[in-house]
Amino acid sequence: MEALQLLVETLVYPGLVFSLIAILLTQWYVRKLYARMQNRVGPLHTGPSGLLQPLADFLKLMFKEDVVVKGAGDKLTAGLLTVSIGAILAILLMTPLAIPLRSITGWYVVIKADFDVVLALYLLVWPTVALALAGFLSPNPFSIVGGSRVFSLTIAYELAFALSILTPVALTSLLYGAGYSIYASSISSWRLWLHPYTACLTALALATALISLQCKLMEKPFDIPEAETEIVAGPFTEYSGPKLALIILLHDLELYVGAALITFLFLGGPAPFFKPLWASALTFLVKYVIVVSVLTAIKAAVARFRVDQALLLFWRYVLPLALLALIFSMASPLLAAQVF
C-alpha cells in the first residue's frame, strides 16, 4: 500500500503532474513580471493573458527534430537530464507540501528521517552536475567553456547555499527538536521569527540563500555560464528540440523547488494560517510568489558579473555571512537559557 501511495505522490501530487502545472504557471508569472519591469507586455496571445505560452513553448520544443552533432553525447545527456529532474522532484516529498493530501484522502507518504537534510543537499547538486556535464558532452568549445564555468561557480555557491539551508534546520533542531529533518524544520521554522536573535540569523541566511539560488539558477547577474554575448549559450549551445525542452524543464523545476524550499524553511510555509486548508494554501502561495518576485526583480535590475567578480562576491561576502549565521545558530542553545 505504501508503495502505491509513494507512486501516486511521485507522479501526481506533489510530484510530476502538479509540479509541471506549477512550473508552467511560475514561468508565466516570471515572464510577465520580467517583461513589465522592462516596459514590455510579455506573453499575451496563447491562452488568457498568454497563460498557456510556456506550455506551447515546451510542446513546440519537445516535438522538434533532435539535432545531435558528430561526437556529441546523445542518450546519455537525455538520461542525465531526466535523472536530475527526478532528483529535484524527490525533494518535494521531503517538504510538508503533501499535507493537503492527508485532509482529502486520509493518507500521505513523506520522506522524513533525522539528518535527511543531507539527502536534500545531495539531491540539489544533481541538476548542476547534469547541466555542466551536458556542456562537456558537446563537441563545441563554447559548450565546454560554459560547462567549466558552471563547475567553477558551483564551488562558490553550492557551499553557500548548503550553509544557508542548514541555518534554519540547525536552529529548529537545536531549539525545537526538529532532528535536522527538512519536514520537521519546515513545520516549526515560523517560530524562528518570534525572537530577535533567531530572526536576525534567519534573515541573514535567507539573504544568502536567495543570492546563492540566483547563482544556482544561472540568472542575472550570475548568468555567466550561458553568457550569450561571449559564449553563445554556454553548455546549451549545441542543444535543440526535446533535449533543450528537458534543460528548460530542469531549470524551471530548480526555480520552483528552490523557491518552495526557501518558503518552507525560512518563511514558515503556510504559517500563521494552518487551518482551514484554503487559507494555508493561499498563505503559502503568497510567500512563494514573493520569493519568486524577489528573484525576478534581481534578474531584471542588474547586469552580468564577470566570472572572477562572481567568485569573489561569494568567497568574500556571501560564504562568510552564511558561515557566520550557521556558527551563531549552533551557539543558540547556549543562549537559550537566557533569552528564550
Binding site: 509513494l6 507522479l11 510530484g15 529532474i85 516529498l93 520522506i111 528521517a113 539531491l123 528537458l246
Partner: peptide
C-alpha cells in the same frame, strides 16, 4: 530510518526519470 528514506527518494527519482525518458 534514514536509509529507508534514501531508498524511497531513489525510487521516486528513478520512476520520474524513466517516465520522462520514455516521453523523450
Amino acid at each position: 530510518q534514514l536509509l529507508i528514506e534514501v531508498l524511497k527518494a531513489s525510487a521516486s527519482m528513478f520512476t520520474v526519470a524513466i517516465i520522462l525518458y520514455l516521453l523523450y
